[in-house]
Design a protein around this nucleic acid. Structure first.
Lengths: 191, 191
DNA sequence: CTGATTTTAGACCTGCAGTTCAAGAATTCG
DNA sequence: CGAATTCTTGAACTGCAGGTCTAAAATCAG
């Protein structure tokens, strides 16, 4: 019983995620969150406890969404190399198409909070492991399909891909599309 | 005439740089800077104008120092691949050896301030271009020396190396030494 | 030594971030 | 319908970030 919530928590978390992603953690004030979600500050605190806790929920949503998109995208028809290339291009282009180059929320988080927030660091580490797992699986599938060399160490290559992707998303903050696409080509030349 | 400064500006800027690097821009308060430099807040503002301006000076010092170290390190005896490998290992190990994993100040800056501070973005872009220039030069030297394939596009490869290095420094926030060294090997396998 | 000039340092100021609170509103149960 | 419960909201609170200011201190020119 009691008065029912006037909002869908998942929707609010998604809106908070967008705000944190666009502005960064420190630069997002409770007032910003209230405006972005259309909910009073008090309600936010009532429902989510603190800015930091709401951020944790947002980060978790980011994780699940990213994993879903990645998995789906890598599974579409095409060779392993084609799919990975398309995925890298997708992410870089999304960054460049937005009004601000917000990069990857996970990377931004570890960069902004990693030094003083162990929980944030662990969360990002989990996401990275997950991505590496997805890359590994796709590479192994490629080995079964015959479009990836059987001698390749899939796990090592997946670690490299995750690193290259992280680097690309850093470079996407300062460089432009043609350069970034060229880097993607160089990165994947060995596959 | 007038009362002479009681400190060496370059020393103060270096101390400020360390603090910004370790704690991040937003998390460094004027009080922190006063403590780190041993100078009163008032004096800092008198000499440097604002926190943001002092940061710009710190970032500039970082740039010059980094360029110097890189150039010197890549020029030491050894093949191109050996020198680049040693350089990557150096940076990763330095990150891991410190009490906090502070990463690269330039990357941290573009991540924290890039969205709202064009000047910071441009400064980081300049540093990246500089690094790419150094990598390009070293690769071209390798081509003259005969330890790098003449057919290689040095500029494209340098862009890739800068990207990979950026990625490594992101990964160095969450992963441990053996993994990072393995990634370095994978990254440089093609050279 | 005096006056002009520049630096020093910490007290002081302003605004806002992050959070709590109080009073009212919407719901279920009996 | 009244009681119990949960949610809503803007006002109110606390602390500190970032910056200014003032009075004293240190120098040099004359």
């Amino acid at each position: 019983m009691g008065r029912p919530k006037s909002f869908e928590p998942d929707v609010v978390i998604a809106q908070a995620m967008e705000t944190f992603w666009t502005k960064g953690y420190a630069d997002t004030s409770p007032a910003d969150l209230a405006e972005a979600t259309g909910i009073g500050k008090g309600s936010l605190y009532h429902s989510f406890g603190s800015k930091r806790e709401l951020f944790a929920r947002a980060l978790d949503l980011y994780d699940r969404t990213a994993a879903e998109v990645t998995e789906e995208f890598l599974a579409r028809p095409g060779t392993t190399k084609e799919r990975i290339r398309a995925y890298f291009v997708l992410l870089v282009d999304m960054d460049l198409d937005g009004p601000v180059r917000r990069g990857c929320l996970a990377q931004n988080t570890v960069s902004e909070l990693g030094r003083r927030d162990e929980q944030a660091t662990r969360a990002v580490r989990r996401m990275e492991e997950r991505m590496i797992g997805l890359f590994t699986a796709r590479l192994q599938q490629g080995q079964r399909d015959g479009d990836i060399d059987r001698a390749l160490d899939a796990r090592a290559q997946a670690l490299f891909l995750q690193t290259a992707l992280a680097g690309l998303r850093v470079m996407a903050k300062t460089f432009d599309r043609p350069v970034l696409h060229q880097i993607i080509d160089t990165t994947l030349a060995g596959l």
